[in-house]
Write a protein that binds this DNA or RNA. Structure first.
Lengths: 350, 350
DNA sequence: CTGAAAGCGCTTACAG
DNA sequence: CTGAAAGCGCTTACAG
């Protein structure tokens, strides 16, 4: 009777600083399973260290109560968030979506989640995103490109968060990078066009991000080496789209009517060029050869199929994530710059 | 002297349970700014409640120390994560990427972050993702479609997390939904084809998700009403791609050689059909009319331009996020089912 | 293999 | 407008 009275008075006068969330916690599970909270924690993280019988009782209690661990509490206590920050230039470019898929497939295997940020190709925005994400105490970062701001590098160093760069190569400094040589890719497209006999190939470049400029550089280098004028080109900072491709064909033909081939810095542009050629009655590749970049899903099925560079974007994401996990485990990767290469897919458009 | 000795002995014998992270905390900022940690917290969240002078000292201290608030600690203490879980069917479909952009633009204004999950059109996977995300204590969810599993509904109810559904309408139950009528969209494409005089229009359907089936239903309804055979169709559960479109044209022509128009459940398929028509020497729209769905970025620039349904996918994301924020503030939205409509873009392909 | 104690870095709920 | 105390729900670092 006394006991009941006591309970009632407790209910009427809750603790002064009480702010119970009503949420099922590890303590509730522990009580039901007749173990300590610590053992529940172990059963979840390192089951091998917990007796089978206890493990079963804990599993049953978790199920019965519908327990979901509180990630915030775990992060705070362990200083490990299991979160990776990923920064890509654009989500509307399916190239980066493929990379995210690779990252996801890799990280999921190891229990990591990731936050996705879109830098819109802006180094300033990239640095801002890093600042925001640091509040979530990410265990690591996957970044796009190797041209980050100094401020960003300092932030990473200050907070001691490892990062892996994607989409390029970085043989110079010790930063871990996974990608391929954009310069060589541009070079090989030019060589292909030259070998096919095109003598006035032009370059269509959009976005003007550093990697595109490297492709352009390789393209120009091959042309110069072959004694061909490398200055037939149209450049614009606008994002590459099919619509832009339709316009750029007009522009390059106006500048150089004898232009007989174009290397588009992305397949989007190439598709626009193809449609515009059809509209103008220019045969492809007879009157105008078209080469693209990335091998987007429709490139092989266009009419004609579009010659392009096949980029290993899924593998870049997957490999970069694997490397980052190695770094997080303080394993030393064999190499800091992984070159995944590219392939030249020759199709009917050239 | 004594003091120095004391300090030294403390350094040699750290506290038994010490696990200082080395991280700059709110306490460090408070000390430097000569206020309490509570005042720093207020300066960050509700600056109006803090004296201007103190605010300036705090801002200076934050800058000097490079303080970044610990999100995990904040979430744990306040039981608010400022995180929204977003589930979309697919990231390779740019439609959903556009929606994510709308969501981001809306949530960024209000300081929310979001976790993106890809359900691959699977209700089971959707439920799993929700379970995973609940560990992050999201303040709310944005879901795709209105056909969630009962288990998912229970989870949301148990954890008392509000959700807004996207891409469809839901006049039946009280669930908050933002989208448009897929049935009406399919109906209006059929009406357009009928009015143009096509008498054997076929339907090409991929993925077979609920919304596509509603479009098909509207399409068939209009044909039946007009006394036209609605059974010319090819259906496949495979994801819609340009490659698939090239194949499906062959299939429907094999079934029904006299088929004179196709409604493709997505513009990807329509582009494949267009390329395949070109390859087979079928004039568009003379021998084969093509209609698509979504108005992907290249649809207007194809040759010919592709007639399609323009879907308000960016606005769906933006509006859904706005509505969710209202729910989180316990404001009552004027309506639970927001119809953003669609537009029929008539171009040269029909 | 298990558990009691302390602490992670914030915010709530008070009290002034 | 400001601050001292307690607590959020975990994990670390011990000790057995």
């Amino acid at each position: 009777m006394n006991a009941i009275v006591t309970m009632t008075s407790q209910e009427l006068k809750p603790q002064r600083h009480s702010r119970a969330s009503g949420r099922v916690t590890i303590v509730d599970v522990a009580r039901l399973a007749r173990v300590s909270p610590m053992t529940v924690s172990r059963a979840l993280k390192t089951p091998a260290l917990v007796q089978l019988e206890a493990r079963d009782r804990i599993a049953a209690a978790i199920k019965q109560l519908g327990y979901v661990p509180n990630q915030a509490a775990s992060t705070l206590a362990s200083a490990k968030s299991q979160v990776i920050g990923v920064i890509v230039p654009s989500l509307s470019n399916s190239v980066f979506v493929d990379t995210l898929t690779g990252i996801r497939d890799s990280l999921n295997q190891h229990g990591y989640k990731f936050l996705i940020g879109e830098s819109s190709y802006s180094p300033e925005k990239e640095s801002q995103l890093i600042s925001t994400y640091l509040a979530h105490a990410p265990d690591g970062f996957l970044l796009s490109g190797i041209e980050q701001q100094d401020a960003l590098r300092e932030q990473l160093a200050t907070h001691n968060v490892p990062a892996v760069r994607m989409f390029d190569l970085n043989p110079e400094n010790g930063e871990v990078t996974v990608g391929f040589s954009h310069e060589e890719a541009g070079y090989s497209i030019a060589r292909h066009l030259i070998e096919r006999g095109y003598r006035q190939p032009g370059f269509l470049g959009a976005q003007l991000d550093p990697r595109m400029m490297k492709r352009r550089h390789g393209f120009r280098k091959a042309l110069s080496e072959a004694g061909i004028n490398p200055d037939i080109e149209v450049l614009t900072p606008a994002p590459s789209t099919v619509e832009l491709g339709t316009k750029m064909l007009g522009q390059i033909l106006q500048q150089t009517p004898a232009c007989d081939a174009v290397f588009c810095c992305n397949d989007d542009l190439a598709l626009g060029v193809l449609f515009e050629c059809q509209r103008r009655g220019l045969s492809v590749p007879g009157q105008m050869a078209i080469a693209g970049f990335n091998d987007l899903p429709w490139s092989a099925f266009a009419n004609p199929g579009i010659t392009t560079i096949v980029t290993p974007r899924y593998d870049i994401g997957f490999t970069a994530a694997q490397l980052l996990i190695k770094l997080l485990r303080h394993e030393t990767p064999e190499t800091t710059s992984v070159d995944l290469g590219f392939k030249l897919a020759i199709r009917s458009s050239t």
